[in-house]
Simulated assay, not measured.
Amino acid sequence: MTLLILGIESSCDETGVALVETRADGQVPALLSHALHSQIEMHQAYGGVVPELASRDHIRRVLPLASQVLGESGKHLSDVDVVAYTRGPGLAGALLVGAGVACALGAALGKPVLGVHHLEGHLLSPFLSADPPEFPFVALLVSGGHTQLMRVDGVGRYEILGETIDDAAGEAFDKSAKLMGLGYPGGPALSKLAEQGDATAFKLPRPLLHSGDLDFSFAGLKTAVLTQAKKLGDELEPRKADLAASTEAAIVEVLVKKTLAALKQTGMKRVVVAGGVGANRHLRKQLNEACAKNKVRVHYPELHLCTDNGAMIAMAAAMRLESGQQQASAEYAFDVKPRWPLDSITAAA
């Protein structure tokens, strides 16, 4: 028996809707169609995400996007078997939009709904790629305010090996970019500028690189970037590309070496990289080279699925249902979890 799952993502500043269909032969569920609207242009004027504006924009976008994916896939709303939505973590107001729409659709159709963990969506998003991973594996999850290394033995079977104790890698990119006057969103702008710079131009710290554990800390790096920018003063503009490249190199080195340490600690030979920072070209290059030397397979989401999207929510729901970790519910009262640790997920979540 196959299931057609409509996934809705609205945790922050992207509205995503997708259709995923499970396979009767037990193969990885198939992505039939997905659509995404980014709010980047709207938030640029404010230098960051404005929660109230984000929520209002989700309300405007979610149903037209749902109509789009249904039309592109040749499916009808009545064909949907389960409506999945992001329950958390994220912005409370934004989450409530997706949850409310999903539960209203479920109630109207008489179909069950399923709340999905946003980070689990990222974690399982490489299963949407042309080269899906196999369990078990080590996962480097680098999404927004989260940087974690995890042991993943199956759907819902996660063990945190290390995580950030302050700023995450994505925050280090964004905050450093802001210090350099690169605007919003800062991370991609910094990475693009870094391509023109010298990564060895400035000696920046690699926090916790030799700590002996798998935790991360990037707050000190952000402070070092601020200090260096102040030292440069009027010379910052012509040296900005070098500072960007040096900043990116410091973040990537920590991520790569900690990931290799996690692989050594667990004895695994497979690693999955997921989340927005997973699209970083320098990170992919360095990690690919390091893992090739150690005969480790590396898996990533497709580049267009690294950001928040409905496809990862629908896929996570499909894999949860197939594994028996969770059942969809015909109860349409809902809540959201703006703060929701990934390792707290169980079959009864």
Score class of each variant (00 low, 15 high):
301 P>E: 03
14 E>Q: 10
185 P>F: 02
234 D>S: 15
280 N>S: 12
121 G>N: 07
112 P>T: 11
266 T>R: 00
243 L>T: 03
38 S>E: 01
177 A>V: 01
103 C>V: 13
190 L>R: 01
338 P>G: 09
48 G>S: 09
242 D>A: 07
190 L>H: 03
116 V>W: 01
300 Y>Q: 01
238 P>S: 13
317 A>G: 10
239 R>T: 10
323 S>G: 12
265 Q>P: 03
110 G>Y: 09
306 C>A: 04
50 V>D: 07
81 D>G: 08
115 G>H: 00
7 G>M: 10
294 N>T: 14
298 V>W: 00
329 S>L: 10
24 A>K: 12
155 V>M: 14
206 R>E: 07
242 D>F: 02
31 L>C: 05
99 A>I: 01
145 G>C: 04
115 G>N: 01
183 G>K: 00
213 D>F: 05
299 H>L: 00
17 V>F: 09
281 R>E: 15
262 A>R: 01
82 V>A: 11
206 R>W: 05
292 A>I: 06
127 F>A: 10
288 N>Q: 14
291 C>H: 02
152 V>A: 08
240 K>S: 03
42 M>N: 12
305 L>H: 04
117 H>T: 09
240 K>I: 03
265 Q>T: 08
276 G>K: 00
203 K>E: 15
93 G>R: 02
124 L>G: 12
256 V>M: 11
292 A>T: 13
268 M>L: 15
347 A>Q: 14
58 H>D: 02
278 G>N: 01
339 R>F: 08
292 A>Y: 09
129 S>N: 03
16 G>I: 04
155 V>H: 15
70 L>P: 14
32 L>M: 13
296 V>D: 02
319 M>W: 04
163 E>T: 15
33 S>P: 13
85 Y>G: 12
273 V>Q: 02
343 D>Y: 08
304 H>M: 08
342 L>F: 10
341 P>W: 07
81 D>Y: 02
344 S>H: 14
175 K>F: 01
203 K>F: 10
97 V>T: 06
131 D>E: 14
93 G>S: 07
255 L>Y: 04
180 M>T: 09
11 S>Q: 09
338 P>N: 07
211 S>H: 09
65 L>P: 08
9 E>Q: 13
332 Y>N: 15
299 H>M: 00
230 K>S: 15
22 T>N: 06
30 A>E: 15
219 A>E: 05
168 A>F: 06
58 H>E: 03
292 A>E: 14
171 E>S: 00
349 A>P: 13
36 L>D: 02
71 G>C: 10
58 H>M: 04
69 V>E: 11
291 C>T: 06
323 S>P: 13
41 E>L: 13
121 G>H: 03
143 S>D: 08
307 T>I: 04
254 V>F: 11
164 T>R: 05
